[in-house]
Amino acid sequence: MEEELASAYDAARAVLPVLEDQAADTDRSAEFPVKAVDALRAAGLMGLLVPVEHGGSGGDLGDLVAIAGLFGSRCVSTALIWAMHCQQVDCVVRFGGERLRAGLLPRIAAGEVYLASVTTEAGKGGHLLSGDAALVGDGDQLRIDRQAPIVTGGGHAEGFLVTMRESPDADDHRVTLCYAERDQLTLETTGEWDPLGMRGTASAGMRLRGAVPPHQVVGEPGGFRAVAVESMIPAGHLGWSAVWLGAARRVLSDVLGMVRARGAEKVSDLTADRLARARIDVELVASYLASVRDEVLAHRRAGTSLAGMPTQIHLNNLKVAASELTFRAVDGLMQVAGLAKGYLRDSPIPVERVFRDLRSAALNYGNDRLTTMTGALALLDRDVTFAPAGLL
């Protein structure tokens, strides 16, 4: 496995120029970065989390964090697309049945399947743990009729993980996660995708209709909560945070280079203060991301659940802190870069593009939803347990 992972890291570094070359065009056109994603497919990086026995690299969420940060430093849209794909792969690896894993994971490792997530729903937003549209049994098939206002990269996906209410008479918290192949569905794009930032994610709404066999259920029927808590949420929050951190770190590095080129003697106290504050924000995110990453990995290696209250608080806090502090850092760096070097779209430093991309971070599963949950959990954590949980 060490050899496979070393190869994956080499491949990740090798594709960085492709991501960087396509980033500006992807942003201007608001189109899916086909060339960049094809490079990731060809390099075997879509299978980073696929076990070696299924042809993948056998990576863990620590590897996801490291490589997502690299990709985020070049193209935030491509990096987020890839991180969310890996999030879905983690769900299949950990909760898919043997038949599904044996049939699907080798194809993912070969770059043949990009997985998209279908969890949003009109009326509930991005709330993961409830559902309206229900699976309907039809002989040996489960019928899907699902409308989602946001599906990242859905028009280019070969497979989908879809949340559905377990049955028409089930409680709305009895949610089932299903895998569906593109050719098992009739797909209809609804609405347009012309956002402020994250333009290349091509996250237009979709309606999905079709049927899947029961072995394509991921996890227990009605038991999506376990999949979310143990896989989808931690992989998502770690991956997203790494992408945002990689983007902010790159902008900080570029702006520092610009300021150095002007000459250290020309650096005002105000500029120095702004640089320091951006550095502090980036350092704080990097440190907390590392702590929560280590906490999640420790639980997985020990075979213990991530459902504990302190760990859930830490995962929520990571997403909120990373989304807010990386955006604040880039906002401050735009002040340093100024109108010509920071605010203009044709600036030699992509401050303006990353600024718009990171503005979406607080909206990508709304921070206010997370802070409301964290506030309630904090009242129950009398010891105020820091991350990694139990170490302090």
Score class of each variant (00 low, 15 high):
10 D>L: 14
12 A>K: 07
12 A>W: 08
12 A>E: 03
13 R>S: 12
16 L>Y: 02
24 A>S: 13
24 A>P: 00
29 S>K: 13
30 A>W: 03
30 A>G: 13
39 A>V: 12
42 A>H: 07
56 G>H: 07
58 G>S: 12
60 D>N: 15
60 D>F: 01
62 G>Q: 05
67 I>E: 10
72 G>K: 10
86 C>A: 14
90 D>A: 15
99 R>W: 00
102 A>D: 15
103 G>Q: 14
105 L>I: 12
110 A>C: 08
140 D>W: 00
142 L>F: 06
146 R>I: 03
146 R>K: 15
152 T>P: 04
159 G>E: 11
163 T>P: 01
164 M>C: 11
166 E>F: 01
167 S>W: 06
169 D>G: 07
181 E>H: 14
181 E>A: 15
186 T>P: 00
189 T>N: 03
196 L>S: 13
198 M>I: 14
198 M>W: 01
204 A>R: 12
213 P>T: 13
217 V>C: 10
224 F>C: 13
224 F>M: 15
225 R>H: 13
227 V>H: 09
227 V>Q: 08
233 I>K: 12
233 I>S: 02
237 H>V: 14
238 L>W: 01
242 A>H: 03
244 W>Y: 15
247 A>T: 06
250 R>E: 14
251 V>W: 01
253 S>M: 05
258 M>V: 02
260 R>N: 08
262 R>V: 10
268 S>G: 14
268 S>N: 04
283 E>C: 04
284 L>Q: 13
288 Y>C: 03
297 L>M: 09
299 H>A: 15
304 T>M: 04
307 A>C: 04
308 G>H: 03
309 M>E: 08
315 L>T: 02
327 F>I: 00
327 F>S: 07
330 V>A: 06
337 A>L: 05
337 A>G: 07
337 A>V: 08
338 G>V: 04
340 A>H: 02
343 Y>I: 02
349 I>D: 07
355 F>V: 07
361 A>H: 07
361 A>Q: 05
366 G>Y: 06
371 T>C: 03
371 T>N: 02
376 A>R: 11
388 P>T: 09
